[in-house]
Design a protein around this nucleic acid. Structure first.
Lengths: 341, 341
DNA sequence: CTGAAAGCGCTAACAT
DNA sequence: ATGTTAGCGCTTTCAG
């Protein structure tokens, strides 16, 4: 079934024979050129270049005990936010000769653990998990570091997180500062969702403002529509002047629903989303949103991994999660004037 | 600098000692259970389970000569379209125990070739390249299959492509059928761009309609705006009633520009995009677009690779590219009535 | 059915 | 500076 190698691919032995040196010298000429006579080194390198020889990493990995592979478990690489994180991870891993091995979890604990096993079987040297459901229940080999981005569990070591609570406060305060008082929130699931909701309530309470309604959804466009519809039914067309949604996609759905109900954005109802997805600025009006610094978080996770990978990680250093601060990006959906893309 | 393994990780030897059988029998018990006495097999498996033993793939790979790794070169995994393709690839590779090793090319030939070398150094068993600029100039080891998705070169074997020309015709014909006659196109770069443009012109010419203007852009939102502005300047506010853009992102920019010029969509100007990106249905009005079946194309590429990977590929079979047909998704930007998401 | 032995391609300690 | 030797962890003949 599987194809078998028919002819020997160029090996160190082959080029050893070509140049009349030992197989060890070939290895040295390539890895530690300074420990080899310039003359023979050149001969070896020339021969290597001639037949296009590249050391078989399988052999090398076996002896040095590392694969230079980093596992990357993502809910779904097709989601832009995760794609962004993956890209920035890659950018910090690549210069060190490390490559990411991809796996998807679909936000499912079983699949996530499966994926982890599969990666371990490929002998990855470390791993990064985005939105882990399994948290510290992930299988781990000896001295095998996992780094998390936004894990479900709180206070994990070796984790990079967004301060979702601060994000919720950001949204609430922006409404308050722009004179909105009839406010509602459509929350999302998971810890992120809960924390965003918490921050939102917290800031409103501090200002002595009671939200007029609350709902929740699964971050999808229809969920945004349905929740918005439900809120409007409850409070009436005049009962709402500020709507905060835990994700940009839900916000897009909400904007459509509001418009179909005959409400103007932002004149009648201002809308705030979360994430700052690529399309947020393309919506009409452009969506004000709480920005999640996806690239920075990805890069930070990769660096954290490198730390525990190359050095002995000072346990103290990653005892608590690295926290990123969200940022409010103000666009047309909350301020008719400011329409910065 | 690099951490050294301090203690032996559980090896086949270890569990051989535990069970008192030879190391070869351990291997057999795991790989070919039927060739081992049920009794000893159970003993071995029990011991293996107890210490959580997993054969080190590095050792195995070395002897069987395959890594079960598939290289994946993508312009940028952060772009939704490529993320989608990557995901569907993954879905067909995973059941066969294959994993994708990620690399980014940024649409640059140099980087692409670099990436290919890097993947080769990791001993991938095959590779998939999206939007290859290097085409058949990619470095290839002995019996190392590359499969392309939308390569820049025409007529490559082992390639999966979209019929971009048909896509251009689809857009043109939709305008013609809905009674639009003052038409313009903002083309994109690369072969896709050229072909879409070709199909567009071809269909218009067949109908005896002369486009009122033409422009081009780099698929970005601002490019869409700038090109649209230029077209309007040329033909005037009354000179245009149908605008086709070679990408959805450019279309989003165009819609904003049209609106700011005081034109209504679709009443004054109908707009068609290309790709059917996730946000196309969220725009206001929802964007009519030429859909590119990203998932199907990804899956097809993976299957093509498996073909040349497991069997000897019948050369005839992949001598010419596999062609996918685009599909017109009609939404509100061309038809006020039909507002299907 | 099982064990002994060879070897995958490479690196690293030890000699010279 | 170079060759020799050993061995990474595993699979796979080849005997028994």
């Amino acid at each position: 079934m599987l194809i078998r190698r028919t002819h020997r691919t160029s090996s160190a032995r082959q080029i050893a024979e070509m140049t009349g040196v030992s197989i060890a010298t070939v290895s040295r000429a390539l890895n530690t050129p300074q420990r080899v006579t310039p003359e023979t080194r050149d001969r070896v390198l020339a021969a290597a270049a001639q037949v296009g020889y590249r050391p078989n990493p399988l052999g090398r990995n076996l002896v040095v005990g590392r694969s230079h592979l980093i596992g990357l478990i993502v809910p779904n690489i097709g989601f832009p936010l995760y794609g962004l994180m993956a890209r920035s991870l890659e950018d910090v891993l690549e210069p060190l000769g490390l490559r990411a091995l991809l796996a998807s979890s679909d936000d499912d604990e079983e699949r996530e653990i499966e994926a982890a096993h599969s990666l371990l079987r490929h002998a990855v040297d470390g791993g990064i998990v985005i939105n882990s459901r399994a948290n510290d229940r992930l299988p781990c080999g000896p001295r095998f570091p996992w780094v998390h981005i936004a894990p479900e569990a709180v206070g994990m070591s070796g984790a990079v997180e967004l301060d979702n609570r601060a994000g919720g406060r950001l949204a609430a305060n922006h409404f308050l500062e722009t004179g909105r008082r009839r406010l509602a929130h459509v929350a999302g699931y998971g810890r992120e969702g809960t924390e965003r909701d918490l921050g939102w309530r917290e800031a409103l309470q501090a200002a002595g403002v009671e939200p007029v309604a609350a709902a929740s959804g699964d971050y999808s466009e229809v969920a945004g529509r349905v929740a918005t519809r439900a809120i409007l039914d409850r409070v009436g067309l005049d009962g709402l002047d500020g709507l905060f949604l835990a994700g940009d996609v839900m916000a897009a759905g909400a904007m459509r629903e509001l418009r179909e109900a005959g409400l103007r954005i932002p004149e009648d109802v201002a809308v705030i989303g979360f994430d700052d997805a690529d399309f947020a600025g393309m919506l009409e009006p452009p969506l004000t949103t709480v920005r999640q610094p996806a690239r920075d978080m990805g890069a930070a996770a990769a660096r954290l991994l490198l730390h525990s990978y190359t050095l002995e990680l000072p346990e103290s250093l990653a005892r608590q999660p690295v926290l990123f601060e969200p940022e409010l990006v103000v666009r047309g959906s909350t301020a008719a004037a400011a329409a910065q893309s």
